[in-house]
Amino acid sequence: MSARQVAEQVLDPELPVLTLADLGVLRDVREDGDRVTVTITPTYSGCPALDEMRADLVTRLTDAGYAAVEVRTVLHPAWTTDWISEDGRRKLADHGIAPPQRVGPRAVGPVPLNLEPPARRVPCPRCGSARTTELSRFGSTACKALRRCEDCREPFEQIKEL
């Protein structure tokens, strides 16, 4: 297996249904003999999973026989949920977590203010109903919001758009 393949299969410590590749935080893998340089980017500034990701990458690549593993971090360009792969979106939904919608590039200039939660149609990952409501924009981790399905009445998490 190439170093890239090994790195791509490392799991996100907080959403272990996703690989780092699915999540879109793996920016680059360079192999030079038995030396590897992996570049990752944080999701949120305060995401505590970043240190775990670094450690897991070093462990997995070392186990795969690479003698020197360096994990670099890039802050630019800033991570966006648009980088979560199609595969990753499917895995999230299968796991009961609604995937984020596509946001596209941010417009230049001041960020528009939302005086009410944006009326996004987020289908329920359990029953598929489109009638869901946001309970809280902030969930169990920095990247998730909490919603409820008005038909099956189950609460569920959603990766919020960033």
Binding site: P42, S45, R106, L113, N114, L115, P117, K160, L162
Partner: peptide, 23 residues
């Protein structure tokens, strides 16, 4: 470049904070 990159990440986070407060 570091300040610019920290800011670009922060803008997305702060947009959620400000909306939360306004609501």
């Amino acid at each position: 470049p570091v300040l610019a990159a920290v800011a670009a990440k922060g803008v997305k986070e702060l947009a959620y904070h400000r909306d939360h407060a306004a609501q």
